[in-house]
Amino acid sequence: MSRPPRDALRREIVDVAQRMFAGIGFRGTSLRMIADEAGCSKAALLYHFKTKTAILEELLDPLVVDVEHIRASAPESPPTDAVAFALEHAAALVVKHRSAIAMLRGLEDMADEITVVGRGQEWVDELTEVVVADEDTLDRRVAAHAFVAGLLAACLSLPDVDDEALSGALLRLGARMFDRDPASLTTVRL
């Protein structure tokens, strides 16, 4: 068997890991399994990635970049604009990064080892604060948490729904939950 060029092998390792992490989970996947499926030795895999966590972090980098871009471009006021911005961008983020979110399932206890896991809760807390800022009530906080949980569940449970349809449904749901006119929310592309 001929060996692929180094860059091609690195890409193959990442592609294989993505499928395996999303399918059987990060914990259920070993470096040996990834190497075997990528058609390389474990040593060749370790040349490119020192740990399984390093592979996961590379896979999650586009998600992190998009989150940081959203955070940097978020409006500070007025609050209604901030709520619309948060709903539109949260929906766009989870729809675009469904596979990354699938890979993160069940890793909540690994916040110290996997940076994005720890930061994920910070992002959820920020979103919650934005959507409750103009009406900080228990009902509004519950709605914020239900919206985030619903975003994640819909993206993981409805893989057969195309991105545009799912984004639209999530925005209509967000509009109902936060007393917004659905026509005032638009689908954004990240």
Rank of each mutant, 00 (worst) to 15 (best):
R19T: 11
D109P: 03
C155F: 00
D162V: 00
L185H: 08
E37Y: 01
V16A: 00
R27W: 08
E76C: 05
G23W: 08
S41L: 08
V14G: 09
A102K: 09
F147T: 01
K52N: 06
R11Y: 06
P4S: 14
R71I: 09
A72C: 05
I24T: 13
G23H: 10
I70V: 10
E108C: 04
V64R: 10
T128F: 05
A8N: 11
T115V: 12
D160G: 03
A54R: 13
L107F: 03
P75K: 05
F147R: 01
D112W: 04
S157N: 11
L104K: 04
E113I: 03
R119L: 12
E58C: 12
E122I: 05
A35V: 01
S73W: 06
H89N: 15
V130C: 14
F85S: 05
V65I: 11
L63A: 10
A22D: 02
R119T: 10
T186H: 14
K52W: 10
E164I: 02
E57K: 07
H145F: 02
R71Q: 13
R3F: 14
L87H: 07
E58S: 12
P4V: 12
D139K: 04
M1V: 15
R32W: 06
E58L: 12
V16L: 02
R71D: 13
P79H: 15
A90L: 10
L31K: 00
A143C: 03
A111K: 11
R119M: 13
A35E: 02
L170F: 02
A153W: 05
E164Q: 08
E68C: 02
